[in-house]
Design a protein around this nucleic acid. Structure first.
Lengths: 202, 202
DNA sequence: GGGAGCATGTAACGGGTTACATGATTGG
DNA sequence: CCAATCATGTAACCCGTTACATGCTCCC
């Protein structure tokens, strides 16, 4: 109803990024349920953007459908389970492409509880710190293993070239995270050797 | 008022992590204003946990004081500016140490808008993708420079051993982030060379 | 004089979480 | 038969953000 001419954005009540993530999953062309989307997000998006809660996914799906960016239908009776399948619309593809073109890229968000704890090391003890970092090292290794497994699946198919590329990126990221944990463990060790630093013979 | 005997936690209506971050800043012993805390967070915590909004810091300070974890006083009249200075209390130190000892370490939160965009590369174009990643590369380099500068300040003082250690960790983290961006740029380049991949001689 | 930075807040909003509720189907 | 998984939601909560309001002081 506005008198302005706006090309791509008649009604863009700008959606939260999570909505674009969900629409992004649908943009690969498959018809999926909320549950499916969750599983897939756990196996892909999780490594670089976390994975939204189920309830959040359902909310975004309803919103996307209200916006005309997706359509849904109940699964046909042949399907054993009652569920609702979502598909992206041309308008949805357009909107997603427009978001990619125009929305400014937000700075990456990092909340690193392990770094926070070491930073407050003066209120902790060496053993606890060491254990915390070691657990994180194992977590990073696990993430690396999982993202590697995910990548192995969709390799060599040009349709999945970009997801595969980001999975490679994820491998590098989590390998670096593991290595940084190792370096931190080494730093912690040298710090603990220092206090009795009245070294007899230099 | 409870009949139970609970050593460290008579009334722990568990605070959000941001409150512990603010209390953590105060745990280094200085008496600071909300504004001071914000500046300091920008120069330290930001590199591994983001930096909360001013309004959030003020809110947490009020809450910490209500809990008895911090006390405040107006700055003395000698100070040119009207402000309120906060100091950690023994109870606050106790509570923070208790949190470090007992609270489970949350998994690190990562929301990487650049990875998200490349993951959706099929809806974008090579030039845009390349520019996005390049900008991120520069962002990571900037973060690296800034954390290095911060580290240079407090080096070699045992009081700041743990913060310095985390600044070293931050340098590794942001260097790795920059290198991962470079690797991603290389991957993007090879992908763009591939489409005319009817290679004449294998 | 005026802009940059100092300093403290209030108000509105909403995104994303956990907890809860419900019920079907599959497979050991 | 019973647990795990599939499948979809509602309700409450609150963290954290942006936008706004206010006024001071420093320095060019």
């Amino acid at each position: 109803m506005s008198s302005r001419h706006i090309q791509y954005a008649a009604d863009v009540e700008s959606l939260p990024t999570t909505a674009w993530v969900v629409l992004g999953l649908l943009s690969f062309g498959r018809e999926l349920s909320g549950y499916d989307l969750r599983k897939w997000a756990e196996a892909s998006v999780r490594f670089f953007y976390g994975s939204p809660a189920m309830s959040q996914i359902y909310r975004e799906l309803r919103r996307l459908e209200a916006q005309g960016y997706a359509v849904s239908r109940p699964a046909p009776p042949e399907e054993p389970r009652r569920k609702r399948l979502y598909r992206i619309t041309p308008a949805g593809l357009d909107a997603l492409a427009g978001w990619l073109r125009e929305a400014p890229v937000e700075a990456p968000v990092l909340k690193h509880g392990v770094a926070l704890r070491v930073w407050l090391g003066h209120l902790s003890d060496p053993a606890t710190l060491r254990r915390t970092v070691l657990e994180h090292r194992e977590f990073a290794q696990r993430m690396l293993d999982e993202v590697s497994a995910a990548r192995a699946v969709a390799e060599h198919d040009p349709t999945w070239a970009y997801p595969a590329m980001i999975e490679r990126w994820g491998e590098r990221y989590w390998a670096a995270e593991r290595d940084a944990a190792d370096a931190l463990l080494a730093d912690l060790a040298t710090l603990n050797q220092q206090p009795p630093a009245t070294s007899p013979v230099p």
